[in-house]
Design a binder for these strands. Structure first.
Lengths: 192, 192
DNA sequence: GAAAAAACTTGATCTAGATCAATGGAAATT
DNA sequence: AATTTCCATTGATCTAGATCAAGTTTTTTC
């Protein structure tokens, strides 16, 4: 299963056999059953997690007990709680598996070691962060300026591989609209 | 005016005199009058901009001609259009001065040079990006889960130094609510 | 493969916040 | 100092989307 990560990595940067050996040595494979938690609110997150197989969601629970999904991750995506990682404080979010999944984990210490020993990998993580930041800003912009319908159409257009495998009410939660509204939006847009 | 940047930098990382000389050599000071653009939609952004003095806003204009503010920057903040910088494509956003301002500019080439010659500075920019990403994610979360009132109270609590110097209708735009709603929200919350 | 649990749809009603419109006050601009 | 432009407030009305409530279909589980 770590082969998924090897392919991902070698598609992006040139890696020697010795360097790959380090990734193999430090990586920990974790299997998650559907509904199982990778991270629970209140725990401190100290890892970097690469999804080899499956699908996970990251969500917050508000005062009224409502879940708000902030991120989905499928094969070749990273997940985790950066805020907890950086601050060392307990996470305010939960991450659980939507499907049976296989995750590759690196402790923060091993991950730092890999970055320091392999400059190309360090640069890669920076460019990943750069693109994540731009994506997050675009998402903010979509919330400021788009209607429910626009947000939905945008989502299925830009993330069809995610949209096609998760339950509809989770898409609604991710878009910040009610499941009923999403159902009605879809009925209208299919006809168009 | 570049002294503002020197203080900012030396508060954060240790810098030799020779290193500081490079920052002085490559930095370009630009003065902006109120309402003057730093970046206009359609231009390619190829800089990093540090605000020495004043206040700027970054905003998008939608199909209906409505402005949506996505970011404010005051003294000791950075600004720019990362999406255009990374992609090389024309910017979809505008940045202009809300007050007469003084900006310190580094071309992308000089900025890369500084990062490669001064590892501590490179690490600093990574940590800055890390924190910007977390802030952006928290803003997404606030749009998914908060009411107009909650967003406003949060904003004046976490960014009082910004909230106190910009016109109210710009706060409304930043929060994704109408100026009238913000006026009403304030009337209610002051009484409480 | 039957029963139970989730997930989706549809209708009726409600509401937070938008939009429209008018007024008064504060800042720029001359 | 006068005039114009911009800003904030307030009231009246409207609407996108939420909430509540069934009913139906799909998926899990035993």
């Amino acid at each position: 299963m770590i082969q998924v990560f090897k392919k991902y990595l070698t598609d992006k940067i040139a890696i020697t056999d010795e360097e790959w050996a380090m990734f193999e040595q430090y990586g920990m494979i974790k299997k998650l059953r559907k509904h199982q938690y990778l991270l629970q609110e209140g725990d401190v997150w100290r890892l970097n997690a690469f999804v080899c197989k499956g699908c996970l969601r990251k969500y917050h629970v508000d005062d009224k007990g409502v879940e708000h999904i902030v991120y989905f991750s499928i094969e070749n995506y990273w997940t985790g709680d950066r805020e907890s990682l950086l601050s060392g404080m307990p996470a305010k979010s939960n991450i659980d598996a939507i499907e049976d999944s296989v995750i590759l984990l690196y402790s923060i210490e091993h991950f730092e070691l890999l970055k320091s020993k392999i400059p190309a990998f360090k640069d890669f993580t920076i460019s990943l962060l750069d693109r994540s930041f731009v994506a997050s800003q675009n998402r903010v912009h979509s919330f400021i300026s788009q209607t429910a319908e626009e947000k939905y159409l945008d989502f299925i257009k830009t993330s069809p591989q995610i949209a096609n495998r998760i339950p509809q009410h989770m898409i609604a939660s991710y878009l910040g609209i009610s499941p009923e509204t999403l159902s009605r939006v879809r009925k209208l847009t299919i006809k168009k």
